[in-house]
Design a binder for these strands. Structure first.
Lengths: 127, 127, 127, 127
DNA sequence: GTGGTCTAGACCACG
DNA sequence: GTGGTCTAGACCACT
């Protein structure tokens, strides 16, 4: 289920956070579902339990999962919804990235075709 | 000319690199131009000379400036061109960001309007 | 009668203890009354019997209930009285909380109005 | 400056967070001030650097300090103000505590005198 | 020197 | 079994 790259520059715990977010967004993890335990993930990924814990703490802090000591971690109510709202806030991040590309001489057409390409993939998946 | 934010999360030396790149891209720094010296920048920005040096080393490594011992640093030949090529490589970064937004339920229309907005700003500037 | 929230951060056994205390204080449970059995509560609340047992042990330790082997648990003599005494010990907890609020710039008036509000509610109930 | 009690039930890192908050609120730590380094605090308090780090991460997350890798941690802009706002949100916590005491038979007068006492102390300090 | 990340391994409270 | 906290000690990037 999870795949982490220990050689990556982005911290392992951050990779975990991102993947859980992705799973929630795609519906692989639904609200109320139990998230794999710290120890099982630690074994499965050969990652120290503390690192898993850190990722889970962060997800808890963001209100995406709810950690219940002695029972496990569960995907929070409205996790998906709140995730969609927060991600949407990154639209300005997109703007700045486009601005940078424009500065580098990338034409509007190239960027538009890039958008089309991505949404083309999406449709393909849904077939 | 330069503006750095010591409280920012992005390393000071990286901020310097980014700004030099931007200056090259916008033409504020043209090929052959002399880049301010390590010492003068250090004074001006109240930044440790080592940090400035690190930024210059990085720019040198990327082939954007070239150091001439005893004379200073100069914007390299074809700096702008090579910069445009490398930045263009970020198109895949754009794709992944768009993919994320799509996953979060942002519609194609919203993204397209975002692209239009940015290029609208660009045109305005050129008026 | 009992309501527990398994997702809550406060341990289930503690929630149980608090609720029994509240029932004693409000008179819902009077001295000598039989407390529901571990097994029935376990069924009713879908909570592990061990957890119920732990709560009862704690209540026993505090002298609020007494277990009669083979017969069940009963609210102890003077349970209400001793509870009132121990709760009164929380007055110092109140002081420290008020001190914190004062430090945060909350005025004496605001706190007094808060006190009035609570006692206003109480009177309303007794009407 | 800092005092932690390793025997306390409240985690060491939480004690640290609380103390820093208190220092900010009382003005012992002003905005822009440098907070002692992770390592120096670790030595001074005989607490593992990781534990200090955890406290600082939490404070950073709350926007009360700003961690700058390689430079140190600094009290954030508006730290005091935002702290006052968030603490004020605890007024409802005060209400519930008062409600509990009322339930235990504590009279309104006793609580009012408690409030008076605390604010009496405050005035004394300011003399 | 600084903070940030990670591992290894321990103990605790809870269920 | 679960998550939460802590220690000890390491490495990294940055100043």
């Amino acid at each position: 289920m999870f795949q982490i790259d220990v050689m990556s520059r982005t911290p392992v715990y951050e990779q975990l956070v991102e993947q859980v977010e992705k799973f929630i967004l795609t519906g692989i993890l639904s609200e109320g579902d139990k998230v794999p335990s710290v120890r099982s993930l630690s074994m499965e990924l050969s990652v120290n339990p503390n690192t898993i814990q850190k990722a889970f703490s962060e997800l808890d802090r963001r209100g995406l999962i709810s950690s219940v000591p002695g029972k496990g971690c569960f995907v929070a109510e409205k996790a998906r919804e709140s995730l969609q709202v927060s991600k949407r806030g990154n639209l300005e991040g997109l703007s700045s990235q486009i601005r940078e590309l424009a500065l580098a001489g990338v034409s509007k057409e190239e960027i538009l075709s890039c958008v089309e390409k991505v949404f083309g993939e999406e449709e393909k998946k849904n077939d």
